[in-house]
Design a protein around this nucleic acid. Structure first.
Lengths: 258, 258
DNA sequence: CCAAAAGTGTTTAGTTTACACCCATGC
DNA sequence: GCATGGGTGTAAACTAAACACTTTTGG
């Protein structure tokens, strides 16, 4: 975590380093306990919960910025990260948004025309991450984190609820075109596990016997010799995915029917 | 067209009215002569061709800005307009891009730290318009227009070639999910006309007998009693589309198979 | 031996594709 | 009457969907 001197420097001089009035907001989906979760962060300045996000550096591409921001928060790289929409319609984000959110002493601290108080446009990226691999790192803008079920979200800052809705909708369309779901599982997994994952994501029942066929036909799923011990029941086989076939399928636009 | 005083005021004081360093670029598709066309504009300052675009006003939402910009150039409103991607990866657009494009006298005219010379991020919208209804209006940033076949584009400024590619790809996916193609035709059209339109957009042959079935099944197409006179051949029936069913289909996400 | 979860194929229904002949019009 | 393009239906192939019983395991 940075020092207070760094924070003050960021507030005063950040405009020299960062692209103005554009932020990246990350909708980070993880899967745990048979629930699709999204990562929320507490913004201590504003005293509310929202999506983790960050600024783009002046000398950095958008893609670089999105990867950096995700890595700074979660320690992950090599994750599935996808730009899905740019948000600039929220009335609260137009001029004077800070009157709604900021306590007055921050305004005085910043100065009324500080770069951080201007209207922002937000570029939305969604990420699929394996829940267990995430190591959360707070900073001045995010002092706490919580994973919430996508079906049970509190009211968030700005238009972040709407952003999550759009991310979910985009992801649910995209999962029919590309086998992105794997990114939410550990490297080795069982058919019942991936089956439940897809049921959770799409929020509907999928036939247990028909489900693996398309993925098998694409050659993406590889059956291993090992089995997983799961207590007193029959041990299911483990699977992994064929990385070459997977990358191929990501590039193509195959329609996957479950 | 604006006066030169207005231009100078824009250069000097535009930063007071417009959101900084973010532009909207419009990929405007039209259909004519059985060709899918895209509207290009000449940028007189830079002496090159690119996509028509504009700035967002500080007190205006993104959606409002996109509609306004499209209307200012084409005189159209009530068009199909869709945000598809935000571009910020082009190396040329990072710092010092203007060194590549601007003649030096403009730099002197502007001042080296003028707001117009900074790195920009561009939000891409694509529009489908009926070619014949477009009335083109130049301004200081667009002094000439040309419709080009999407299959035959010159080299454009910045990353505009890439932006068009992405718009095309997005539109071709979307047209399988929503019957957006109608926006490219006159209100009344024949089956052969819409058939050729779809063949052109998707760049592949579609069976003449199977093609209208899905659209008919959705109730979107309405056969009229009238026919069109087409010279020395059999007169084809005219069709229009059922506006309610069309709007319905736009909201749903029906997969349309041709 | 019983409860709980895993594993596996076949039949049916639906959807998509392929395909060819007759009709209308103007010259 | 002929050349050109418009209009129409059916059969075959394929794909998706529905469905139930057997196996493994630990207690």
């Amino acid at each position: 975590m940075q020092s207070e001197a760094e924070l003050i420097d960021f507030i005063k001089n950040g405009y020299k380093t960062y692209f103005p009035q554009v932020t990246i907001d990350c909708v980070i989906f993880g899967y745990h306990d048979q629930q699709l979760k999204v990562l929320l962060a507490r913004y201590p300045w504003i005293n509310g919960w929202g999506l983790p996000g960050g600024f783009i550096k002046i000398e950095e591409t958008l893609s670089q910025a999105s990867v950096r921001i995700l890595k700074e928060r979660t320690s992950l790289d090599d994750i599935f990260l996808q730009q899905f929409h740019t948000f600039g319609d929220d009335e609260d984000r137009l001029a004077h948004w800070h009157l709604k959110y900021f306590p007055h002493d921050y305004k005085e601290m910043f100065g009324a025309d500080n770069w951080l108080l201007k209207r922002t446009i937000s570029i939305g990226y969604y990420a699929l991450v394996e829940f267990s691999k995430v190591e959360l790192t707070p900073d001045f803008f995010h002092d706490e984190f919580e994973w919430h079920n996508v079906t049970d979200l509190p009211e968030l800052l700005f238009d972040h609820n709407e952003i999550i809705e759009k991310a979910l909708a985009t992801m649910r369309v995209q999962i029919y075109h590309q086998p992105i779901g794997y990114k939410l599982l550990a490297d080795k997994f069982t058919l019942p596990e991936i089956h439940m994952l897809y049921e959770t994501i799409l929020n509907k029942k999928l036939d247990r016997r028909n489900f693996p066929n398309k993925l098998m036909a694409l050659g993406i799923l590889v059956k291993l010799e090992e089995k997983r011990k799961i207590g007193q029941h029959r041990a299911p086989f483990l699977y992994e995915f064929n990385k070459e076939k997977y990358e191929e399928a990501l590039k193509k636009d195959v329609v996957i029917v479950f």
